[in-house]
Design a protein around this nucleic acid. Structure first.
Length: 588
RNA sequence: GGUCCCGUAGCUCAACUGGAUAGAGCAACUGACUUCUAAUCAGUAGGUUCCAGGUUCGAAUCCUGGCGGGAUCGCCA
């Protein structure tokens, strides 16, 4: 039989012991080809089950026609002289439970300290280029709450993938090719007239928001009164360009305040008139996926003004979509889908994997986009689309809605000014992307209990505080990382110390899993859990003075404990960096 | 009506992609502040994982059918 180590993370002790167990299995010379894909080694939920639980016997038993527990016993015997392992037990239906030695746990602390900012980095993405497209809000106004969740999620996912070894491009698709930018231009033109002292009326269908007032002012400065006498035909393209740029400046500034910096802004308009759309469409045409046809009306709910029209259609049903999709309107112009196909055609040439972050209102668009990517590529699924669900805002116990139409919407800027970027980011990442999120201003402002971001930051600050304080109590004590990394750690033997080490040692595994699943919220939950272990250890020192980090009469033990908590701080800091949240040195 | 997402403790959510006795926080109750920073901790109590079948050593998780909530449904983007 053959087994292979999982590609990826050499710092992940669970991957390490999985390989150890499979090597023991291999050494048993069992007959036949054995499939081990389902074998996992993971931390057991119940601490009484040891440190590493492995299901190998249950997975393999049937293949080799043995009873799971018998097989487990045989493997356990092979593992008994491994110095890293104190005991191997067979439990339940055939679980192999490993208890690891204190020395092994202690070695994990030095490993974390040596790796430092790289602790937890994985290699699952090494050599792979991934393009993460997120935000991509229409350039018609400032970003609001809905965009914020997508921005935070996409940005954390991008950082996570970077940490997992990918070559990441953060990209924003500017929808500057459709009629909404014409509407923007007309709306800005009104503000321009207003800036010249004219009375204006914002008619239905234009953007009423007063964020366009300064744009009108700038237009006046830039164009003087030269546009006033022109026909719309003349000024429209000029104003469209100017206003779109102004909106993108606004959006870029909003994103910067949230800590989001894009690598690439890709303009939809740049696809028109350059042959790129035609090129992408002919790529589909060459596969026989483009045809002229008439769509059936939607089942059940038929639009009032429905009438059959012949359109140019993409045969997306070939790749799992429910109906074929129009790429041209009945008047022959491209639909939104056409440039989007071209855009993804372009992205596929620049990256090995694509990830799009969409709002929930685009859920109906997922199948056709994935179909297009499969059709344009080699038929494999290189696009993953993550939907972020809606954000509901609560204040004083009441929900309030936003409406772009009335101009009375809660912007990203409002959010940051009220609660700060760190809180916004962390709160939005303590939820799975596909679950709706209630954002409660009152709780976000509350700097305590209900607010996990402070809990995690406080753990980090506490450690920093101990590291500052130690040299005051023990004169001449060195607390720099290289000293701590080389420290004698044999004094770390208490259960709550070992529990914290075990939690720290889980970090690389969580990175790998979160990155594979494209789920940054796992990082947030892990950090919360890790912070809990730290607070627990700290508070154990309130009742039992012998457990305090700083022992004035024992420099060796103090150094060992500082090494432990410093390793914890490094882990928290590495995790927070992925989420884009500041690890505080001090919180008063 | 079609499609996608969700349904887990009183509330807000996890559950390592199929693992062992389903876990945290809030709210409730008991206890710990002359603090290595109480923005904290230790403990008690709280469950038919929406319902009914199926798949297997094993299901909150996978498949089928319901129920309930949200999003969306050619010529907007």
């Amino acid at each position: 039989m053959a087994w292979q180590a999982e590609p990826g993370n050499e710092m992940d002790i669970f991957a390490e012991f999985r390989a150890t167990v499979l090597a023991a299995l291999d050494a048993m010379d069992l007959p036949g080809e054995i499939k081990t894909a389902g074998v996992s080694a993971e931390p057991p939920r119940d601490a009484s089950h040891g440190d590493v639980a492995c299901n190998v016997a249950m997975v393999v038993a049937k293949q080799v026609k043995q009873k799971p527990r018998d097989l487990a016993e045989a493997i356990a015997a092979k593992l008994s002289d491994d110095v890293r392992i104190d005991a191997v037990e067979v439990a339940g239906p055939g679980f192999l439970n490993l208890r690891l030695s204190k020395e092994f746990w202690q070695s994990r602390v030095s490993a974390a300290l040596k790796a430092s900012a790289d602790y937890g980095k994985a290699e699952i993405g090494t050599g792979k280029r991934v393009n993460v497209e997120y935000v991509s809000a229409n350039p018609t106004g400032p970003l609001h709450v809905g965009h914020t969740r997508g921005a935070v999620f996409g940005d954390a996912l991008a950082s996570l993938l970077e940490f997992a070894g990918y070559d990441v491009t953060r990209e924003y698709y500017i929808n500057d090719g459709g009629s909404q930018v014409d509407t923007l231009a007309r709306s800005a033109m009104l503000r321009y007239r207003e800036a010249h002292g004219q009375a204006i009326e914002i008619v239905e269908g234009l953007y009423p928001g007063d964020y366009l007032v300064p744009v009108g002012q700038k237009m006046k400065e830039h164009f003087g009164d030269s546009l006033l006498s022109q026909d719309e035909e003349e000024w429209l393209p000029v104003v469209r360009e100017f206003a779109t740029e102004a909106m993108m400046d606004l959006i870029r500034a909003d994103l910067a305040d949230l800590g989001v910096v894009m690598d690439e802004f890709f303009s939809e308009k740049s696809l028109y008139g350059t042959g790129l759309i035609e090129e992408a469409v002919s790529a589909l045409e060459s596969k026989g996926l483009i045809y002229q046809g008439v769509l059936e009306p939607p089942k059940g709910k038929k639009p009032d003004d429905w009438e059959p029209r012949e359109q140019t259609l993409f045969k997306s049903t070939e790749y799992g979509d429910d109906v074929d999709r129009p790429i041209k309107k009945s008047d022959g112009a491209w639909t939104y889908f056409a440039p989007d196909i071209a855009y993804h055609y372009n992205k596929l040439q620049r990256a090995d994997e694509l990830i799009n972050i969409f709002g929930a209102d685009h859920s109906g668009y997922v199948k056709r986009m994935k179909a297009a990517c499969k059709a344009l590529g080699d038929g494999t699924d290189r696009l993953d689309i993550k939907l972020v669900q809606l954000v509901k805002l609560f204040k004083n116990g009441e929900e309030f809605k936003m409406s772009k139409r009335s101009g009375m919407f809660v912007t990203l800027r409002d959010l940051i000014e009220e609660v700060g970027a760190d809180v916004v980011r962390f709160v939005m990442l303590t939820r799975k992307n596909d679950a709706p999120l209630d954002f409660d201003f009152d709780k976000a402002l509350e700097q305590s209990k209900d607010n996990p971001v402070y809990y995690v930051q406080y753990a980090h600050a506490r450690i920093c505080s101990a590291l500052r304080k130690a040299p005051e109590e023990l004169a001449g004590l060195a607390t720099d990382d290289s000293t701590l990394a080389a420290a004698d750690l044999s004094g770390l033997t208490h259960d709550s110390e070992l529990a914290l080490i075990a939690k720290i040692a889980e970090w690389p595994r969580h990175v790998g899993q979160a990155a594979t699943a494209h789920e940054p919220h796992r990082v947030a939950f892990y950090l919360y859990d890790l912070a809990g272990s730290l607070h627990g250890l700290y508070n154990a020192g309130q009742r039992d003075l012998g457990l305090r980090f700083i022992q004035a009469d024992d420099p060796a033990l103090t150094t060992a404990r500082l090494a432990l908590v410093r390793a914890c701080a490094i882990t928290i800091s590495n995790g927070l960096r992925i989420l884009g949240v500041t690890p505080m040195q001090e919180m008063r």
